[in-house]
Design a protein around this nucleic acid. Structure first.
Lengths: 195, 195
DNA sequence: TCAATTTTTGAATGTCAAGTCAATTTATTA
DNA sequence: TAATAAATTGACTTGACATTCAAAAATTGA
């Protein structure tokens, strides 16, 4: 990768960051290309030099979130912990990350309203891979006698629902930090699969 | 209420019904006033005879959903059941209703992106009243020794999250009916508060 | 330095959908 | 039936925003 290519890549990154910040505040439809450009002290014309359009820009930010989520799980899986501890850590990480990247997670709600068919295919592929990580952990936990789950995909979706909904009701004004809060929430969500 | 007033009320109702159907398919931003009018075999101009505008129309449909949800809980509370059975029934009803009125429930996700400040106040008021019903049931269940919950609002939000997320992953193509499906999901969600 | 290349700009364009309204049609009632 | 009121129409206005692009500015490297 040449110097210039790296510079371009970094610029793209900066744009994606700003996009996520503005999206978090105004939502997809409330965010204009101009809003994003202004946040970067640029004009909107420039954005089209780096991205095909708004859809493309937002799609790439979404992909980044999904990749990062997967990385988070992988990191936990490397650690030397019991299955239950692993699942707990994965949940905490997910909640913590979802609160940090609120906008990115809100985009997950109605992707079909925003993205093209091809983009949706890619998004669903990554989501399924992510869900599979949970299924594996739950299955291992059942095997090991920690968990009691008959319908793994159902329990996993219930679990992910409880987790993803947190962005709807967490208020940063509360006394707890994001991580402490995530810990507390996890104590209740983990019960969904516990024996 | 005069005959004509009742006729108007009924027409408004028909419009709200169609709005919810179209919204369920296309989402808020994907739905135009013309879409709603076409579904009623009218032209969009007529809609403005009954409603101030799109925001007003959608707001009223949202209010209807919230009122109906509250009615559902009240109906269950009338029944002669244990606390645990009551909570289970409330959850099943909620899930069942949320799948029937998918669009109305999706509007709950980012209301601030759609509604005015005054409308939001009203929406939040109704939501809180609804949440309070759950809190009461949970508290009574703790009292009676069925449940084990230290932070009731947290557990309740975790519970509602698991429930509200169902619209995201339920597929009507599955083998189970909405109600049977709701039952299955409830078995896992109820664990959030169980001893 | 200076020519080539990359990047930025901002004005112009096109599209789409919300909302308006005078005119028309339909329903009501005296 | 005829006057009045209610309901509907569809063409029109308006504003917002994504996208384009030729020209200008900034950067690079020989």
């Amino acid at each position: 990768m040449s110097l210039m290519e790296r510079k371009t890549a970094e610029k793209k990154n900066k744009i994606l960051n700003s996009a996520l910040i503005v999206l978090a505040e105004k939502g997809y439809h409330g965010t204009t290309m101009e809003d994003i450009a202004n946040h970067l002290l640029m004009t909107k014309g420039s954005l089209y030099y780096y991205f095909k359009g708004k859809q493309d820009l937002v799609f790439q930010s979404q992909i980044r979130i999904l990749h990062q989520s997967m990385e988070n799980v992988k990191a936990v899986n490397q650690e030397d912990l019991t299955i239950e501890e692993k699942l707990k850590r994965v949940i905490i990480k997910h909640i913590d990350y979802s609160l940090t990247e609120k906008a990115g997670f809100l985009l997950m709600i109605n992707p079909a309203e925003i993205f093209s068919k091809e983009q949706l295919t890619e998004i669903y592929r990554l989501r399924e891979a992510y869900a599979a990580c949970y299924d594996k952990l739950i299955a291992a936990g059942v095997e090991a006698g920690f968990f009691d789950v008959e319908h793994i995909p159902v329990a996993r979706n219930v679990l992910l629902g409880a987790m993803n909904w947190v962005t709807q009701w967490y208020s940063p004004e509360g006394a707890l930090s994001k991580t402490a809060f995530a810990q507390l929430v996890t104590d209740y969500t983990i019960r969904i699969v516990k024996k």
